[in-house]
Design a protein around this nucleic acid. Structure first.
Lengths: 210, 210
DNA sequence: CGCTTATGGATACTGATACTATCCATGACA
DNA sequence: TGTCATGGATAGTATCAGTATCCATAAGCG
């Protein structure tokens, strides 16, 4: 397959494919001569994955590169490989809060994790994000919403076990790690969309005549 | 309060505040003379909200502006005002898929919505995003993950009713709409973080020695 | 064989986004 | 009275995600 066909097969413009090649998101095709390379099925798959991450999940190109690199690093132990992908998948979203707001939020989150018996790396970026977000709720005067943290955690527990299980069913290691990435990222989009639809539906019902 | 104090109170640099004023995110202070304005508590609150949306939830500045405008448009009926804010909150994330993949995804999603008796505007951006995401799962060979769509929907239903209820408890209309915005956006961050933590915890347990 | 078109590779350019920096005339305040 | 901050305007910057252009070469067609 030549680059033009790869472009047709995926709907990605040729210059964009060249850009991804330059950036190392896509492995180079097999060169048959200095200006002729051929691409295969793997390139189509990779390109689809790249587009899904960038367009649907809004993952920055540099992060996509990291993720793909960790996908291809199949020499290290599985849980480390996945951890690396996972870390790349977690955006670092921070917001400086006052010290005591942070302390309170940290306490709240620590308690939640303890109560549930989760084993969480204290360095996990998602942990910092969660704490900052709780602190932000507080500083925005929305403490009443923090009260529902356990409801969120319950709901999350309800599907996470199934997600991990579904992913584990993959026969090969490559497929497993790829499923982790896709499941983690696209799953977030699915959950967010469902939530918005459910909110719309419920609130339309409730506030019809206010 | 002068701009320098506003800056100190919120941690936002003065030039950035000026930028937000220029962009219309923040209402101008009350001018006491051509080069002297005073800002109040409302400005602090507004600025905190802006920063939370931008930093934590990665909402683009232009969207923040739309959101704030809908917050301030308290002449229209409540559900319309909220609908407008809600629409601004929903990022339009699209990915072109093959026609039959889209059709299948649309059917799947329509069925889900019907089964649950949700009333959803067919124009809702979240709907298009959901359909595209389902189609993307398929084109990435992850149909097995689509099987869990109902599990996600169950979990989402579990907290959405409570969320809407919590928000409804707000005494004034202004507070209610602001809560909707904060709850919708920060809630997403909370859910995403919790999910990542839960995934990490469960998968660490499961794949310790693979 | 010749001609058009596509290709790989390199380099340069673009448009959007979110700030920063600078400038200036004026005003606050010590 | 002098220093500093301020409002307002305009210009500059860094990053990101592509696009565009160029070139020498190669493929495919008649």
């Amino acid at each position: 397959m030549r680059i033009g066909e790869l472009s047709k097969a995926t709907g990605v413009p040729v210059p964009t494919i060249k850009y991804y090649l330059r950036e190392g998101l896509l492995p180079a095709g097999e060169l048959s001569s200095p200006n002729q390379a051929s691409y295969g099925e793997a390139h189509i798959r990779r390109l689809r994955l790249i587009r899904a991450l960038i367009e649907l999940a809004q993952v920055p190109v540099a992060t996509v590169k990291e993720i793909l690199e960790s996908l291809d690093a199949d020499t290290e132990p599985l849980h480390e490989q996945i951890g690396r992908a996972h870390r790349a998948l977690t955006p670092t979203r921070r917001l400086s809060a006052s010290d005591d707001a942070r302390a309170a939020a940290t306490a709240r989150v620590t308690k939640l994790i303890e109560d549930r018996g989760w084993s969480v790396d204290p360095e996990a970026p998602a942990l910092a994000t969660l704490i900052d977000t709780i602190a932000a709720y507080h500083s925005l005067g929305q403490d009443n919403l923090i009260a529902h943290l356990d409801t969120y955690a319950d709901a999350v527990e309800a599907f996470t076990a199934l997600e991990v299980e579904a992913v584990t069913a993959n026969p090969t290691r490559d497929q497993l790690t790829e499923s982790v990435v896709i499941g983690t990222i696209l799953g977030e989009t699915v959950i967010a969309s469902l939530r918005l639809l459910a909110q719309e539906s419920i609130s339309a019902e409730l506030w019809k005549n206010r």
